[in-house]
Each structure stands twice: as C-alpha cells, then as structure tokens.
Amino acid sequence: MSSNVERVKEEIEALEAIFMEDISISYNGQDLPETVKMTIFPSTANDIDKQYVCVTFEAMLPEMYPDIPPIVKLKNPRGLDDSILNSLYDAIKDKCFEFSSQPVIYELIELIRENLTECNLPTCQCAVCLYGFCDGDVFTKTQCFHYFHSFCLAKHLLTTEKHYSEEQDKLPAWQKSTKAFQAACPVCREAINCDVDDLKSAPPPKDLESAQNFSVTSELKMLQCKMQELFSYQKSRGGIIDIEEEENKLLLITNSSDDSSPDVDPGPSLEQVDENNPKSSIDRKFKSDFRKTSR
C-alpha cells in the first residue's frame, strides 16, 4: 500500500514540475491526490491563434491507483465532434491497459495532445449555416472556442448590430442604452470582439455549393395530407383560431356595452359574469360554437 502512495506522490510531483500552473491537483481528506485536471491544447509552438480544438482532461485516481487505472473524463470539448471524442476514449483505454499497474497520467496527457494536434481543425459544424469546415474555408474561432465560417459570422454580426440600432431608434431618448453594441457568440452568447470588415471579405463556405437541392417526396405529400385532415377536423370542432373574427372581437370591447343580444359577440371582459358559468363571455361564445358544431 505505502509503496503505491509513494509512487503516486512521485508521479504528481513530476507532473507539477512538467506542466506547472497548467495542471491542477485536488486532494482528499487524507491529503492524498484525488483528481488531476488539465485543459489540453494541440501543440502549435504556443501559437494560440492556431489552436482550434481543446478539451479538459480529468482523471480520478482510485485508492488502489496505479494498480487500478484512473477514471478519465473529457470535458468541455471544443471543435471536436462525438466520433473524435469516442476514439479518444478508446485510445485512453488502450493506453491504460498497456501501462497497467504503472503511473500513466503523463502518458495520457501526451496521447490526448498528439491526437488534438493531428485533428487541429474543427470537425463540428458551423452553427450558422449548419455545414462543416472544408480545406480552404475561411473560419473564425471565437474567444469561447466556437467556430464559424468568417462569412457566416460576419452576417450574424452585421444583422444583430442593425437590429440593435433599429431597436434603439424606436426608444425615447431617456430609454436609450448608453452602452455601445456588444456582439455575442451565436452559440453561448458570450461577448465576442471581432473585426467585421475583415470577416465579411471572406468567401462563402465551400460545402454550401455542393449541397443537394430540395424536392417534395411522396412521404412528404402523405404527411401534408395528414396535417390537412387534422386541420379540417379541428376546424369542424371550432378549434381553429379565426384571426378576422378574433380581431373584430377586440374591436368590439371598446365599442359595445350590450351584452343581452345573443347574435352579437360582446367580446371578452373580466366584469361580465354568467349565472351558470362564472367565466368571461368569450368562453360562452366558444361553448355556443361547440354546441353548434357537435349537433
């Protein structure tokens, strides 16, 4: 047992010496290391602008570690899709097996880093156009590690800024915001700062051009028929909103005070109370429609 404790201590000391402040270790009540956590980036000679993917590695060390392998979790993956994550988990499992009963954390971190370096191109989709990133596409990584074709992000930024200033123009002077427009990431709404002029000169994404066209299939036609049937059925039961009728009702609220005529719908009002039904008159109107149609 004590030899295990010694070995783990040595390993942790070595990890801290190598990764310094990049790695964080948490300890349990007995002052023994419990979890090792580190956000791993691809090796790009520390050029942060060229790091397009990252993942947070978390290893829980069981009491019997290293006789028993650590429990590894990969959290907050950025720019990595599920298939890459799954293959990373498989590689981690193989590495743990290869290093059974030996300290393995350093090996795992390097394994993940190698994999990230190999696939240092976002494999996710652009959340704006829903297409992937091809070789040659110009794309942008936000500070929050979300990816967009520069072309798509520019469109988003220009539109939200336009909407913002339109809304501001509508407000009276005293309600106008004193803050300038702040762009937000479409995915996580974190504030982002980008050079729109630079982005908008980017070409549209390549995948868009090769996408196939839309056609109405027989399956779609069948679904359209089903929807139509439901619509007709609900209409026959008075369940469909008649916009014109509803708008007229709203007009009548202010014009009519006559509640006695059965032909005129007096519109909704909170004060009106029926003896049998202490609800607003609009409910009575629906009830009479219902009686008519169910006859």
């Binding site: 995915v187 008075g238 909103i241 509803e246 709203l250 629906f286």
Partner: peptide, 28 residues
C-alpha cells in the same frame, strides 16, 4: 398557434410570447 389554446403566454390570435422569437434569437 393555429389551434385554440388556453395559455397565459399565447394570445387569442395564437401569437406566442417567447424571448428566443424576439430579442434572444440567435442563428444557432
């Protein structure tokens, strides 16, 4: 909404009060 519904955030005309349909819209 086209079908009538009794809901505090949906009016008689079927219009829906939901922030993501207004100022909280995002292209994602």
């Amino acid at each position: 909404f086209i079908t009538k519904i009794y809901h505090p955030n949906i009016d008689r005309l079927g219009r829906i009060c939901l922030d993501i349909l207004k100022d909280k819209w995002s292209p994602a």
